[in-house]
Amino acid sequence: MTGTIGAAGAAGAVGSAGAVGDVGSIGSAGTLGSAGASSTRPCSPVAARVEVVRPAAAGDRGTVRAATAVTVGEDETVFPGHYPGFPIFPGVCVIECVHLSGLRTAPPGSAGLELVAVESTRFLSPVFPGDRLAVDLVWTGGTGVWKCAAKVATERGAAAQVRLRFTAEEA
C-alpha cells in the first residue's frame, strides 16, 4: 500500500514538472514525434529530464556525435516496485534514457525519429537512485534509418552499452 501511494505521488509531481521543462525544449529542437505523435513528452517509465551536454555535431568518418546527462531521482515512478526496499534502476530504464537522449539529439536533417529496434545492450553495473548518468551517443546512417550507439556511465564507471535503431523521415 505504501508503494502504491508513493508511486502515484511521485509520478504526478515529476510529470507536471517534466511537462513544463521538456515540451519547450523538445518542441524547439523539432526532434520528437514518433509516427504522428504530438509534441508532448512521450509516454515513458522515466520521469527524469534529459540535459543536452553536447548537441548533435559531425564527428569523424561520417558519424554524428552528441552527449547528454540524466539524473535519476529517488522519486522515479519505477522504484517502489523495482524492488521494494531495494531500489535498482531497471535496465530497460537505462535503455529508455538512451532512447530519450536520442530523441533530444537527433542527427541534423532527420525528423520523426521512431525506435524500431534494440540491436544490442550490455548491462555492466547497476544504477541506483541519485545516480547521474552520462550518455555518449554516436549516430550513423541516414536515408531513413539511423543507428545510435551509446555508452552510459555513472560516477562509479561504465553502466551500459546500448545500440538502438530508429526510422526517420528525411527532411
Partner: peptide, 22 residues
C-alpha cells in the same frame, strides 16, 4: 498504468502507444 499519467489533453492517438522499453 502510471506511464500514462503525464499525457495531457493535447495527446494524440499515437501518444498512447505503450512504452517500447516496457
Amino acid at each position: 498504468e502510471p506511464w500514462y499519467q503525464g499525457l495531457g489533453p493535447d495527446a494524440v492517438a499515437a501518444d498512447y502507444a505503450y512504452p517500447r522499453v516496457l
